[in-house]
Design a protein around this nucleic acid. Structure first.
Lengths: 216, 216
DNA sequence: TCAATTACGATACACTACGTTCCGTATCTG
DNA sequence: CAGATACGGAACGTAGTGTATCGTAATTGA
């Protein structure tokens, strides 16, 4: 129904899957990738500097030198924009390093995560989760676009470790992943204790003490 | 300076410490405790039902049959009101049971927390933490009025357990407390996995596996 | 009994941000 | 050049915030 505006996907600034594979030739004025990038960078920068409090569509538009309408055309809500900015800027900062034992891999990863999240990125993450409490779509985009795939990676590492006999087999993997990663989120969101670079290592040591087949 | 309105404390609806101890005789019309209670109950109910999204001063005032001005007179912000409602209604629901070993106490407590937080109370908590990301004062009121004292109780239990030789002494208590409690908050805030009544017991089992002096 | 004091609820106000609509202009394809 | 689409500006209605003002209610103290 209706004629409405962009026939494209309207959730996170990505085009719809399309049928062929690539269809670079469309009809009208093409989307300006530079503007898209400026908007995403502006969104991320504002989240880093002011958290969710200062994150308004107007502020992002002003900082990006774009029109508010342009933002509304491509992102369906504040939350969608925030998630898109986060995925574009931050998500690539934390790769897994697939080498060594499960414990080594997880520990290293946990250290990296703690280090990155202890700074500006942590503020963005906290803002994102806060916004997610307000808007289910935002939470969903965050879960499917970031949290779930990351968790899946961790799960595979732990499973491989169990397979190789490095870890006890009688554990609930989801519970273990929570024990490992939840503290980092907790320290970001509920700042009773600071999150520092070696918080990750401390947590890993503690949790793996309950995972090794024999006593350490 | 200025003459301003209520000479009382203006943060969370409680009177200032005062000098004597009790001074029940003041000059003008006394505060109507019934109204105060209706407001706090309304605030909590709205948080339970709609989360932070529907939590507006106007909605609380309407539901309580009070004027917005009355709310602004006694609570300095939305967050202050939310925390006050939470502390009045919810906090008393989760007492510690000081009996048995440290592991038993913590496990029991964790079960109760998971059970309570898996329902409406969890939604209130999530809303509170979300609002806290927006307003530092709210976070502070939550930390000092709820999170920190609770954590202190847990710390005492663990310390006593170490003292009695039930638990390893070479652990960082803060890290252990995070490993125990953070997963519950995580499942409330980042709903990848559901929080159920026995999530608490599972977590306790996992974490204590790394705490016992000998293998179980 | 009455003055002073404080609480309460209603109304009005200025402000901010949201999300939408409309319009003129720019940039592409055919 | 026509058609289609993107961009940015401006205006609009809505919602909520926080403040100020006002009339009324309740209590203390003289």
């Amino acid at each position: 129904m209706s004629d409405a505006v962009p026939t494209r996907g309207h959730v996170d600034g990505h085009e719809p899957p399309a049928e062929g594979a690539a269809e670079p030739k469309r009809v009208g004025r093409p989307r300006q990738e530079a503007t898209k990038l400026r908007i995403l960078k502006a969104a991320n920068a504002i989240l880093e500097e002011t958290g969710i409090a200062g994150f308004t569509i107007e502020a992002v538009a002003a900082r990006a030198g774009a029109g508010r309408t342009t933002i509304y055309r491509w992102w369906s809500s504040k939350g969608a924009l925030a998630v898109a900015g986060f995925l574009a800027e931050t998500a690539p900062k934390i790769p897994y390093v697939p080498t060594g034992s499960a414990r080594e891999q997880i520990t290293l990863q946990l250290q990296r995560v703690a280090e990155v999240y202890s700074g500006a990125t942590g503020r963005v993450l906290a803002a994102l989760i806060a916004e997610g409490q307000r808007d289910p779509n935002t939470m969903d985009a965050f879960l499917e676009g970031f949290a779930r795939p990351r968790r899946e990676e961790g799960k595979q590492i732990l499973l491989a470790g169990i397979e190789r006999g490095e870890l006890r087999a009688d554990v609930d993997i989801e519970v273990v992943l929570d024990a490992l990663y939840a503290p980092i989120y907790y320290r970001i969101l509920v700042p009773l204790n600071p999150l520092t670079a070696d918080t990750g290592a401390q947590i890993a040591r503690q949790v793996f003490a309950g995972l090794t087949p024999e006593q350490d």
